[in-house]
Design a protein around this nucleic acid. Structure first.
Length: 491
RNA sequence: GCCCCCAUCGUCUAGAGGCCUAGGACGGCGGCCUUUCAAGCCGUAAACAUGGAUUCGAAUUCCAUUGGGGGCACCA
C-alpha cells in the first residue's frame, strides 16, 4: 500500500511571490488535489536578515487569490506543526548534534573572514571547490581551545570523499553526482538557525512529505539532502524538479525582470482563472491542442509525466489573449461586478462616485470583447462617464468629407434626433440610415461624424448601441458641442 | 575552473523509431464579416542547433560539439 500524497510549498518570506514561485505552489496544489493528498504550506524563515515585513501576507494572499487552499499551514495548523521553521529550531539542533555524535558532522570554528579569503583565493585560481575542511579533524584539545576562545561554531556535514550520490527525478530522470565534487557544507549556523539543506530535510521527514516539488535550480543540492537523509536514517521523498520561468534574456525570472509578482497581475486586471490556466500551461500540456481548461479539468487530467523540462518564457501576448477569452466568457452581471472596482480606481477623478451600477451593466456588453484586462475598461470606456468631451476638429471631419458637409450632417442629425421618442438602437438606425441618403452622403460617413461627435473617438463600440446607452440628452449636448467646435475651427 | 540540467516555428507547446512533406495555440501577414474598433471565421508564412553513430528507417536512441541556464554562501 502506498502512503497518501503529502506535498508542501515552502517559500521563504522575502517579498511578494512572483509567477515562477507561485507556479511551483500550483503544481504542488494540483498534484495534491489530483491524488487526493494534502497540500501543506510551510514558511522557511530561517534567514533573519532576508525576512521582509508583509511577505507572509503576500504569500497567503497570492495563494488564496488563485484558489490554492492549504490543508495544513501557519494559520490553519495541522498535526505536524508548527509550520514556521523559526519555531522548530530545537529539531534542527537535535538533528545536527546527533550527526556530530555519530561522526557524520563536525563543529567548524573558521571565521567568516577566513572563509571569504579562501573563496577569493579559489576564485583567483579559478578553482572554486568549497570549504577546505580544515576543521574536519580537530583534536579535542584544539577544539577546547577554540571553545575557550569563545568562538561560536557552525556545524558542517562530513561529506564522503569518495563514491557517488544519485537519484531518480520524476521529470529529469536519473542524475548522478560524484561525492568528491561536494564540500562539507554548513548545516547549522553559529546563531543556532539551520541552513536550508538541514531544515528542509528534517521537516520534510517530520511532516511525512512524499513528493518534493520545486524548481530545477535545486537539483544540484539534492545530493546534500540525500546524504543527510542517509546519515539520519530517513527515507528520502520522491523528487520532482520542474523547469523555471525565464525572462526575456532567458535567465531565471527574478525581480529585475519587472512587474512579475502575481499580485501585480491581479491589480492590472487579469482573472485568477486566466493565471491558473496560463501558468499550468507553461511546462505542462494535456495534449496537442487543448489550451482553455477549467481548474477542475486541470486537476483531473494533471500528470507529472506530461511536464516538460525546458525553461519557458512568460509570454504576455498570449496571456492577454487568454484573459480576453475568460473575460468574454463572463456574464454581464459577473463582469460588471468585477469591473466596478477597476473603473472606480482608474476613471478620471472628476467623475462622480459612486458609479451607477446599472449604467455600468449597460456598458459592459459593448466593451466586453474589446478589453483584455479589467483595467483596460477605464481607458476604453471613459467617454461614457465624462461630462465634457474634448473634440478633435480634424477627427470630426472625415477624410472623405469637407468641414462644410460635416457641419451640415451634424446639424441635420441634431434636428432629427431631437424629435426621437425612444432613442433605442433600432430607432436610431431606422432614422440615421435614411438621413444619410437625404444628405447625399454614405451611411458610413455620417456614422463616422456622429461617432466622433458623441464620443470624441474614432474607434468605439457600435454607434447605435453606444448612443442609446449614452442617452438622448447627452448625445444632443455632445453634438451641439461638436457643431460649435467645428464652427470655431472654421472661423 | 569544477559539477549539474536543457535544446522542435519569434513565443508556449504536441511528438516517447515508420502515423511527420512535423500538429495546435499566441503573435505576424492576407481575406471574409462590418458604420469605426474589436470579437468571430477562413487562409498563409514560420521550427526539429551542428556533426557523427545505431537502424531498412530517426525530431524521436547513443556519443561529441556548440549554445543557453543553474550550482559551487553561516541565502533560500
Amino acid at each position: 500500500m502506498t502512503e497518501p500524497v503529502r506535498v508542501r510549498f515552502a517559500p521563504s518570506p522575502t517579498g511578494k511571490p512572483h509567477v515562477g514561485n507561485i507556479r511551483t505552489a500550483m503544481y504542488d496544489w494540483i498534484f495534491a488535489r489530483h491524488t487526493g493528498g494534502k497540500f501543506i504550506l510551510r514558511i522557511e524563515d530561517t534567514d533573519v536578515a532576508r525576512k521582509k515585513e508583509g511577505a507572509l501576507e503576500a504569500i497567503m494572499e497570492s495563494l488564496k487569490w488563485l484558489g490554492l487552499d492549504w490543508d495544513e499551514g501557519p494559520d490553519v495548523g495541522g498535526d505536524y506543526g508548527p509550520y514556521f521553521q523559526s519555531q522548530r529550531l530545537e529539531l534542527y539542533k537535535a538533528a545536527a548534534e546527533r550527526l556530530v555524535a555519530q561522526g557524520d558532522a563536525y563543529y567548524c570554528y573558521c571565521s567568516p573572514e577566513r572563509l571569504e579569503a579562501l573563496r577569493k583565493e579559489q576564485e583567483a585560481r579559478k578553482q572554486l571547490s568549497g570549504y577546505d575542511r580544515s576543521c574536519r579533524n580537530l583534536s579535542p584539545q584544539e577544539r577546547a581551545a577554540k571553545e575557550a576562545a569563545g568562538i561560536r561554531p557552525v556545524v558542517r556535514f562530513k561529506t564522503p570523499e569518495q563514491g557517488q550520490t544519485s537519484f531518480h527525478d520524476l521529470i529529469y530522470g536519473d542524475v548522478v553526482f560524484e561525492n568528491n565534487t561536494l564540500d562539507d557544507f554548513v548545516m547549522l549556523k553559529s546563531d543556532g538557525y539551520p541552513v536550508y539543506h538541514l531544515a528542509s530535510v528534517v521537516d520534510d521527514h517530520a511532516m511525512k512529505i512524499t513528493h518534493v516539488i520545486r524548481d530545477e535550480g535545486w537539483i544540484s543540492s539534492v545530493p546534500r539532502h540525500l546524504l543527510i537523509y542517509k546519515a539520519l536514517g530517513y527515507e528520502p521523498p520522491q523528487y520532482v524538479h520542474h523547469p523555471v520561468i525565464v525572462g526575456a534574456d532567458r535567465a531565471k525570472l527574478s525581480k529585475r525582470h519587472g512587474a512579475v509578482s502575481l499580485l501585480d497581475f491581479r491589480d492590472i486586471g487579469y482573472l485568477p482563472e486566466t493565471m491558473f490556466n496560463f501558468l499550468t500551461l507553461i511546462g505542462w500540456s494535456l495534449d496537442d491542442k487543448t489550451e482553455i481548461m477549467t481548474r477542475e479539468q486541470i486537476v483531473k487530467n494533471f500528470s507529472i509525466e506530461r511536464m516538460g523540462k525546458t525553461g519557458a518564457f512568460f509570454n504576455t501576448d498570449k496571456l492577454d489573449w487568454m484573459n480576453g477569452v475568460y473575460i468574454r466568457g463572463l456574464t454581464v452581471e459577473d463582469l460588471s461586478d468585477k469591473l466596478l472596482p477597476f473603473l472606480d480606481k482608474y476613471l478620471p477623478p472628476e467623475i462622480k462616485r459612486p458609479l451607477d451600477v446599472n449604467y455600468v451593466k449597460q456598458i459592459v456588453p459593448l466593451i466586453r470583447e474589446r478589453i483584455n484586462t479589467l483595467k483596460d475598461a477605464a481607458a476604453y470606456a471613459d467617454f461614457f462617464f465624462v461630462d465634457k468631451l474634448e473634440h478633435d476638429a480634424s477627427k470630426l471631419v472625415d477624410k472623405k468629407m469637407d468641414a462644410e458637409t460635416a457641419l451640415t450632417a451634424l446639424k441635420s442629425a441634431e434636428e432629427t434626433l431631437s424629435s426621437l421618442e425612444n432613442f433605442d438602437r433600432d430607432e436610431l438606425e431606422n432614422t440615421l440610415r435614411p438621413l444619410a441618403d437625404d444628405l447625399g452622403i454614405k451611411a458610413g460617413q455620417l456614422f463616422s461624424v456622429l461617432r466622433v461627435a458623441t464620443t470624441a473617438r474614432d474607434a468605439t463600440p457600435p454607434l447605435f448601441e453606444t448612443m442609446a446607452v449614452l442617452g438622448k440628452e447627452r448625445c444632443l449636448k455632445r453634438i451641439k458641442a461638436a457643431i460649435s467646435r467645428l464652427n470655431n475651427h472654421r472661423d
